[in-house]
Deep mutational scan, measured.
Amino acid sequence: TFELKGKVGKVVKIAEDHYLVEVEGDKWIAYSDEKLSLGDRVMVVDVDGLKLKVKRIP
């Protein structure tokens, strides 16, 4: 999972307290300090167990 840091993915689902992002064909639970929208491109900035911390990228 640490090899996911720096990888780019996209938001595929928005849940009440987390996001579902697809990175390299796999779906992961993710969270972010900013509000994300469906389809946003994101970069993995940290890995916390099986959850990814992501940030939006242009």
Rank of each mutant, 00 (worst) to 15 (best):
T1G: 15
T1V: 15
F2W: 03
E3G: 01
E3I: 02
E3R: 01
L4P: 15
L4Y: 01
L4S: 02
L4V: 12
K5Y: 15
K5S: 05
K5R: 04
K7N: 03
K7Y: 03
V8Q: 14
V8T: 08
V8Y: 04
G9P: 00
G9C: 04
G9K: 00
G9Q: 00
K10S: 09
V11C: 05
V11K: 00
V11H: 00
V12D: 11
V12E: 10
V12S: 07
V12T: 12
K13P: 02
K13T: 09
K13I: 11
I14Q: 12
A15Q: 10
A15E: 08
A15C: 07
E16Q: 14
E16G: 12
D17Y: 11
H18K: 12
H18A: 11
H18W: 12
H18S: 13
Y19L: 10
Y19D: 06
Y19S: 11
L20V: 09
L20K: 07
L20H: 10
V21I: 12
E22G: 06
E22T: 11
E22A: 08
V23L: 04
E24G: 04
E24N: 02
E24V: 04
G25E: 11
G25M: 09
G25V: 13
G25L: 09
G25C: 08
D26V: 08
K27V: 06
K27A: 06
K27Y: 07
K27C: 04
K27D: 10
K27E: 05
W28I: 03
W28V: 02
I29Y: 07
A30E: 00
A30M: 08
A30F: 01
Y31C: 05
Y31F: 11
Y31Q: 09
Y31T: 06
S32C: 04
S32Q: 14
S32V: 11
S32G: 08
D33P: 10
D33E: 11
D33Q: 12
D33M: 14
D33N: 14
E34T: 11
E34V: 12
K35N: 10
L36K: 01
L36I: 12
L36M: 11
S37W: 13
S37T: 11
S37F: 07
L38H: 11
L38S: 06
G39M: 10
G39I: 14
G39L: 11
G39R: 13
G39Q: 12
D40T: 09
R41P: 13
R41G: 13
R41N: 08
V42D: 00
V42G: 02
V42Q: 00
M43V: 15
M43I: 14
V44Q: 00
V44A: 02
V44K: 00
V45S: 09
D46S: 03
D46C: 03
V47W: 03
V47P: 03
V47R: 03
D48Q: 07
D48M: 12
G49A: 13
G49C: 10
K51S: 08
K51G: 10
K51N: 04
L52F: 03
L52A: 02
L52H: 01
K53L: 13
K53M: 14
K53W: 14
K53I: 08
K53E: 05
V54N: 00
V54T: 04
V54F: 02
V54S: 01
V54E: 00
V54K: 00
K55S: 13
K55F: 10
K55T: 05
K55M: 15
R56D: 03
R56C: 04
R56T: 07
R56N: 06
I57F: 06
P58S: 05
P58M: 08
P58V: 05
